[in-house]
Nucleic acid binder design. Structure first.
Lengths: 366, 366
DNA sequence: CTAGTTTGCTCTATCGATTGACCAAGTTGC
DNA sequence: GCAACTTGGTCAATCGATAGAGCAAACTAG
């Protein structure tokens, strides 16, 4: 070894590709290419294993920032949601995160509940180049339109989850129509004729979609949609609560309720109890999203299970696999399913049938 | 302008600092320093505003990866949790995210539920330099010990949330002792003498801590701790369910239950109902974590509210503000509170008192 | 035996922001 | 009137990985 200036050896905690290359006696580029399975590279079996051994021994991992800086396409996907505390979105996040590991990208989840608007969230993530593609599962119609515009303009790949915008179509949908259909059909088959819906806000495209689907489902069953039987609620316990109160004020009250979001349903159920309305004797309730908790409420909730986790996972896969300019208009592959539990029964409440539906209690765990 | 090679103008979607510098007629370094309030910089008022105007006009944001690569200390904090779908952790995430905006760092949340172990999660985040500090809210004792070791070795700043490790102390705790105390005290004051606990797994340090606190609280009330009155459960609905079943098998059954996690409590409540055990008539239940949903269950749940969201927020603040080598041994500032609702009543169930506690139903929303 | 191809690597410029060294012009002190 | 500061900047090196051009040696075809 040549003369070497003695410096204070800082315990350099960071292992670089250059270090690996030196120890393995190759060029840094080789290390990089081997680790990424670069098809343009031809190396001998022997060199490859020698490099891998050094990588292993030193615990080398490429520096994320450097990778990101150099090559514009490095796996990091953003997911924007309204709120972590809503269990439906927690499911979506979970599914997306799982898929992110399979696709070897990292997932950056941001929620709008923590003080920023959905739009600012998107701009922050994209403009600072923290992610190179985006799943958008939040925002009302106005916001999603603007987000769409912004992302198209910047040429960033994206996919809307159960949201539709007026511009480019890149969306993955849940089968809300089928879900509403299942719920209505179930209630009709129990003998209900006066069915009301608590749906999302009409400022949300999902809310409007579900409202339309509800009207269609009723018509299919030869029932007349009534505007006073459609109540808007935001996706929260309080939203469900006040929506239920609104229904209680109607002169001609429905005998059954379709609630198109889980926590809203729980809120409505709580409100029913406070109001002395017995579910299902006085009012049946079918609720969206078959979360595990549905089995633990009193009464247990009849649900239509939408595939939230699958939406997260499939959304991420589509986003990663499909070229950014391709139009995407897909529906989550697994269909919605009905899980009959105690909260639905024939109108007037026949105890016999109520008991029968109780037997179905464990009809799904998801 | 001099002769200029005509090139195909690619709509360069990216604005660089150099572009800003050119338009503002300054050196790129100035732009960088102005934007970061670099104290070593002296610029004229005029130049500063000229640069800021261009920044504004072009919508320039520094490239995150480039910043990160060059300067090792850039705001990005990781948060590792077991599962997004557990509402208690959703609260923590929410609090941390909120604080992350205030402290102008970005928050990267990863859960272990999506197939990786907590340790691998940590290693992935840190080794690839995606974050420069870490909040750890997951992992059993063994894992946290190893994580602690790893982070110390790499010199990465970190903070454990409600977890303690055998090594260095850098933790922020919830006041579990006080919480358990409040619950036990409340039950004792209602007249209960046979109080059992469903706690976390003893492989978790929190679980053991809560078990100890439970024993101490009993002793303070002159009650003898009984080993068969302490049942372990993992933090899930199913865990609560089977823990409750275990308690049902005891010869001498308790009249009250302290459950030290929310979903576990909901699971136990569901199991009680299936077993025909009426809460609170046959068995009182006090449950940890005052989540909003406690108001919507049947019966509404008496809870001790731990400050989960605050733990996330304060944890992030500590992590960002305190020097990485300083010892931290703090407790969340806001104290635990008791919220009395329907699920607790005197043993044997006096209707009068049950009604009284019902009146307290709205005793807290958080 | 020589041109052409394949194999297995090496070398260099580059991504965008940051850092510290450096410097010209103007001010102040004595 | 000159050295010493101050003000307001400029310049070049650097962070670590990567893409693609280049190149020597070995091998093949005719």
């Amino acid at each position: 070894m040549a003369k070497r200036k003695v410096t204070l050896e800082i315990a350099s905690t960071r292992v670089t590709g250059a270090q690996v290359a030196r120890e393995a006696n190759v060029d840094p580029a080789i290390v990089s290419k081997i680790l990424r399975d670069d098809p343009s590279l031809r190396v001998s079996r022997e060199t490859r294993s020698r490099v891998m051994a050094v990588v292993e021994r030193l615990g080398y991992r490429p520096n994320y920032a450097a990778q990101r800086l150099r090559s514009s396409r490095i796996g990091a996907v953003g997911l924007v949601i309204p709120d972590f505390r809503n269990p439906a979105f927690a499911e979506i996040v979970h599914g997306a995160e799982k898929a992110s590991h399979e696709h070897r990208v990292s997932l950056f989840v941001s929620s709008a509940a923590a003080s920023k608007s959905t739009i600012d969230l998107v701009i922050d993530l994209v403009a600072s180049d923290r992610v190179d593609a985006l799943l958008v599962a939040g925002g009302n119609t106005q916001e999603t339109d603007r987000i769409n515009e912004y992302l198209v303009e910047r040429g960033v790949s994206f996919l809307f989850l159960n949201r539709q915008t007026s511009g480019t179509r890149r969306s993955l949908f849940l089968d809300d129509e089928r879900a509403i259909g299942l719920a209505v059909q179930h209630l009709v088959s129990l003998g209900h004729r006066k069915i009301a819906a608590i749906g999302g806000l009409s400022s949300m495209e999902t809310g409007r979609r579900r409202q339309r689907a509800f009207a269609q489902a009723l018509q299919k069953a030869d029932l007349q949609p009534r505007p006073d039987y459609v109540v808007e609620a935001d996706y929260s316990l309080a939203g469900g609560q006040s929506a239920f109160a609104q229904i209680m004020e109607l002169g001609d009250q429905p005998t059954a309720l379709v609630v198109s979001e889980f926590v809203t349903g729980v809120g409505a159920l709580g409100a029913a109890r406070s109001a002395g309305v017995s579910v299902p004797r006085d009012m049946s309730m079918a609720v969206f999203n078959n979360l595990d908790m549905a089995n633990f409420l009193t009464p247990t909730l009849t649900t239509v299970g939408l595939q939230l986790s699958a939406m997260g996972a499939e959304g991420l896969a589509l986003l990663v696999d499909r070229p950014p300019d391709e139009e995407i208009n897909a529906t989550v592959s697994k269909p919605a399913e009905l899980f009959v539990r105690e909260s639905t029964a024939p109108p007037g409440g026949s105890p016999a049938i109520a008991a029968a539906s109780l037997a179905l209690q464990n009809g799904g765990s998801e």
